[in-house]
């Protein structure tokens, strides 16, 4: 399990030949439009502060052009920031020397890409050992570690295939195996599943959640798909025009959208899968009456299903230690599932 989170502090990125010159103006309130029209520079990221929890999945969500791919590339410094810091294990990634950065990328991070970015001249096994080869791990050791992950992502038997003999979903499994073989604490996933068909995407999400259950890595996952964000994210940050406009758990965002932009976004969300029983329960248990007991961490969809099946209109709620702490009614449950928060 990863023991350190990633702290992104006051991060700014201005694209253009003289980004540094305009940093004070931008901090002083110059807008993106003004910077672009008057000075020909593009404001990529503005004052980003995100504390990414250790051992959890942090989703960064936004539409194209929101700066999410730029943001993830600051964590392993594929893009140089104009100002600000990215702290990991009390070290600022932005201050590392070239060789420190190389070691950091080799041992602490691994990345999965939207367009897979596999080496076309190497087989599945050749691609999977790539990170280990760069680390200088000896061949036999690298091979056995790679084989383990190839098996884990479900590609056994395809070791000697070339990437273009595989479907998109299988190619991304190779991408995932390559990243996992690195044994790094941080896993950076840049729209990793966006190029895949919906069914295969769901499948890959399950693979990822399954692996995460066991490994507890610090995962940064970029997506433009809210359903994906809500399914994977322990925490979600929403980006627009290079700024974070809201961050929190999926439930917090769905229940309290920060503005009409986010409210629009979450309109179509299946709320029954995001809101937990705990959010709507009464603190008073129903004496003796309730035949079924639900967990406070269950989602409303599960709760409604359980009550409908048992033909009950209410249920008691217990916490993780099985202690009864409250109750819910079917009516409230359905109400919460269908009404969007007003804004």
């Amino acid at each position: 399990m990863a023991s350190h989170g990633i702290e992104i502090k006051d991060l700014f990125k201005i694209f253009g030949p003289h980004g540094n010159k305009f940093i004070d103006a931008v901090k002083g309130g110059m807008t993106k439009t003004e910077l672009n029209e008057k000075h020909g520079h593009v404001l990529g990221l503005k004052d980003i502060n995100i504390s990414m929890p250790a051992g959890q999945i942090q989703v960064v969500m936004g539409l194209s052009g929101s700066g999410k791919s730029t943001l993830i590339r600051h964590i392993n410094r594929l893009i140089e920031p104009t100002a600000g810091s990215v702290q990991y294990e009390d070290v600022d990634v932005c201050q590392m020397s070239t060789s420190e950065l190389q070691q950091f990328r080799r041992h602490k991070t691994a990345m999965v890409f939207q367009k897979f970015a596999l080496l076309p001249h190497r087989t599945v096994i050749g691609n999977t050992v790539y990170g280990l080869e760069l680390q200088g791990v000896n061949k036999d050791e690298a091979r056995s570690r790679a084989l383990k992950w190839i098996d884990r992502v479900g590609l056994s038997g395809f070791e000697d295939h070339y990437p273009n003999q595989l479907s998109g979903g299988m190619q991304q499994r190779v991408g995932l195996a390559r990243a996992l073989s690195n044994d790094a604490d941080i896993l950076l996933m840049d729209e990793a599943f966006s190029a895949l068909d919906p069914l295969i995407r769901t499948d890959m999400q399950s693979v990822l959640l399954d692996i995460q259950e066991e490994l507890r890595k610090t995962i940064v996952f970029i997506t433009h798909d809210l359903d994906e964000a809500l399914r994977l994210g322990d925490r979600i940050a929403i980006l627009r025009d290079g700024e974070v406009i809201q961050q929190g758990t999926g439930e917090e965002i769905v229940l309290n959208p920060a503005d009409s932009y986010i409210a629009d976004f979450i309109k179509e969300v299946n709320r029954g899968r995001v809101i937990s029983v705990e959010t709507i329960m009464n603190k008073t248990p129903i004496e003796g009456a309730a035949n079924i007991v639900l967990k406070s961490s269950d989602m409303l969809e599960t709760a409604a299903q359980a009550m409908a099946q048992a033909q009950e209109t209410s249920a008691n709620v217990c916490d993780d230690s099985k202690k009864i702490i409250g109750s819910i009614h079917l009516k409230d449950t359905i109400n919460a599932m269908v009404t969007a928060a007003r804004h």
């Binding site: 392993n76 594929l78 070691q103 990328r105 691994a110 367009k115 080496l119 080869e133 760069l134 950076l188």
Partner: peptide, 27 residues
């Protein structure tokens, strides 16, 4: 050579020499 693949090599911590021999020359 495809910049996406070069970026991947960078992300995995390839030195310029490693990048040349594992990505650029073969491709």
């Amino acid at each position: 050579v495809d910049t996406d693949i070069l970026e991947a090599a960078d992300a995995f911590g390839a030195s310029p020499r490693q990048k040349l021999w594992t990505v650029q020359m073969p491709l």
